[in-house]
């Protein structure tokens, strides 16, 4: 489904992704673990066709990257506050619906769960609420692959619980996500990969071992 071969990308001459190989099967929920600056976000952006790469091959659902057709199958939820501040939530939903098939009832359900008024402008919400909105919008897109970058960063525990609840509402789907909040994401994911020196050098499916491996590798 997702095949990455010998992926190579540099930033300012320094390799961030170095001959990286990776495969994901349908239905997997892959959790990428690494400290800051190890290339997690870059990898997701390259996979989402947002950023270019220098060498290697990426194939998503049989389509070679880069292609706008790949972006049609992906819902990318950014860590950054990247929506239009002046737009109301329903305007953003309307705009997104012009490009992807959106499950509106799911989105409305998410909004009521999060107690968010869709008639308010995006800029009127707090930073944490804006993260919730981005996650809710991204998860409402009927995508084949969800790429989620740090969905819990800079959220208090109440909002983190809400995001985890949203993720828990998802049935099926293939996910690749990054987060530093291991405890919250562990139950959601079913495959754990560790990124170091621009490569995925280790992986496990055993939740109980994840923290120990992380400590051993990155301490």
């Amino acid at each position: 489904m997702v095949k990455v071969k010998k992926l190579f990308k540099t930033y300012g001459g320094k390799p961030v992704l170095n001959e990286l190989d990776f495969e994901v099967e349908e239905g997997e929920r892959v959790y990428i673990l690494a400290p800051n600056g190890f290339g997690k976000t870059t990898f997701l952006k390259v996979l989402a066709n947002i950023e270019p790469f220098q060498k290697g091959e990426i194939e998503v659902f049989g389509i070679k990257s880069p292609s706008h057709k790949i972006r049609a199958m992906i819902s990318y939820i950014s860590e950054r506050d990247n929506l239009y501040p002046g737009f109301r939530i329903i305007d953003i939903l309307r705009f997104i619906s012009g490009f992807w098939e959106v499950d509106r009832s799911k989105f409305e359900n998410f909004l009521s769960l999060l107690e968010i008024n869709p008639l308010k402008r995006y800029s009127e919400f707090s930073k944490g609420e804006r993260t919730l909105i981005r996650v809710a919008l991204g998860l409402s897109i009927k995508a084949k692959l969800y790429l989620i970058d740090e969905p819990l960063s800079s959220l208090d525990f109440v909002l983190r619980e809400k995001v985890v609840k949203l993720l828990g509402e998802m049935e099926g789907g293939t996910f690749i996500l990054t987060s530093h909040e291991i405890d919250e994401i562990l139950p959601f994911a079913n495959r754990f990969v560790f990124l170091k020196d621009g490569k995925f050098f280790l992986e496990t499916r055993d939740r109980d071992k994840v923290k120990d491996i992380y400590r051993e590798v990155f301490a």
Binding site: Y76, S78, D81, N82, Y84, G86, F99
Partner: peptide
């Protein structure tokens, strides 16, 4: 201007259209 201010250029790049 608006897209620069709100980082929306990144969002634009995720759209499934030819750029």
């Amino acid at each position: 201007f608006n897209e620069d201010q709100g980082n929306a250029r990144e969002f634009l790049n995720t759209l499934p259209v030819q750029r």
